[in-house]
């Protein structure tokens, strides 16, 4: 039995996403009347591993091998499958992020386990095992029955609230023997210390209504004041006004922050597809009939150039800056 949850670590550290995954797996294990085992790959300290126990893991397995330093989809899949077999896991929970998407489908074939991805809730039913997932790029949700004995759930980031559930966690470290990786990393270009758009709970986003890349100052300032990240619509990244990593929408990043502030964004279907998972949406746009107001809970009809600086001043005031 047991629910297995794969928790990625970032240079030996976990983050909120990891705790969401463990909280989800813990609750699911309760529903199923079983225990939760977390597995991670790399160098992680005991103190850090114990954090997973705080959110409901009964056991944490830390795998280590020189050959698992970088993500190799085949090797990671093999390593996780071995743990799942040894633990007799019936459900495997994994993040629906870059690395989760690299591993989960392979694991599905390796273990002949049905995969439900983009899941945003606990299963609606255990028999038949029915998950609730995003479909049609946010245009709908689907109830999907996972028909196999072993199931895999790829959970959407920021869709499940973390909940403390202290367990006396057992730590197990395994030095695994794996083949040399076929994926060879030649170079890494990484910006350290920057809040990732996918991790941000507040996102301030600008669209074509900002008129020029020179007008981005107040967007960046507002995001900083709110402890959030900046994003943009597709035309803005296509024009090169902002970096491509900021493009949010169907073909860009799909995010689900608590608060999404859209400034000068009309809200084309493809843009909404990337942000419809946000808990609250605020829209500032000069066109009252812009579709963004159909999905926003709060709106200001006005010129972003004029409204935004005032908004920044108000936030400065309340933040005491």
């Amino acid at each position: 039995m047991s629910v297995l949850v794969y928790t990625e670590n970032w240079d030996g550290k976990f983050k909120k996403l990891s705790f969401e995954l463990v909280s989800y797996a813990g609750k699911l294990a309760e529903m199923m009347g079983t225990t939760t085992t977390a597995v991670t790959i790399g160098e992680v300290t005991d103190d850090e591993l114990k954090l997973l126990g705080k959110y409901g893991a009964d056991k944490v397995i830390c795998l280590k091998s020189e050959n698992l330093k970088n993500l190799d989809s085949q090797l990671y899949t093999g390593a996780i499958a071995q743990v799942a077999q040894a633990e007799g896991s019936k459900v495997i929970v994994i993040a629906n992020n870059n690395s989760g998407k690299a591993i989960a489908p392979r694991l599905s074939v390796k273990m002949k386990a049905a995969l439900g991805s983009g899941v945003s809730q606990l299963p609606l039913n255990l028999s038949p095992f029915t998950v609730y997932k995003r479909a049609f790029s946010g245009g709908a949700f689907a109830q999907v029955v996972l028909k196999t004995d072993i199931k895999i759930i790829a959970l959407t980031q920021n869709s499940f609230d973390i909940a403390e559930n202290n367990k006396d966690v057992k730590i197990e470290r395994i030095d695994v023997q794996v083949d040399a990786p076929k994926t060879v990393v030649k170079d890494v270009q990484k910006q350290a210390g920057k809040l990732l758009l996918t991790d941000a709970e507040i996102v301030v986003s600008g669209g074509r209504g900002m008129k020029s890349p020179d007008n981005w100052g107040p967007i960046v300032e507002l995001a900083e004041l709110l402890g959030g990240a900046t994003a943009c619509s597709r035309p803005v990244s296509d024009e090169g006004w902002r970096p491509h990593e900021e493009h949010t929408g169907q073909t860009g990043k799909i995010i689900a922050p608590n608060l999404y502030i859209a400034v000068g964004i009309s809200g084309a279907t493809q843009h909404i597809a990337g942000v419809s998972g946000s808990k609250y949406i605020v829209a500032i746009n000069s066109d009252k009939s812009a579709p963004i107001f159909e999905v926003a809970q709060y709106g200001i009809v006005g010129d972003a150039q004029k409204v935004l600086p005032k908004l920044v001043e108000v936030v400065k005031e309340i933040k005491g800056k």
Binding site: Q74, S99, K101, A104, V109, L115, F136, A142
Partner: peptide, 26 residues
């Protein structure tokens, strides 16, 4: 990476595993 209808992000990785060949995602 995914189809815009069922959003499963699954076929590419599954195909590679069926064939037992490497896959690179993202």
């Amino acid at each position: 990476i995914e189809s815009s209808d069922y959003n499963n992000s699954a076929v590419g990785g599954m195909l590679a595993e069926f064939l037992d060949i490497p896959s690179v995602s993202a």
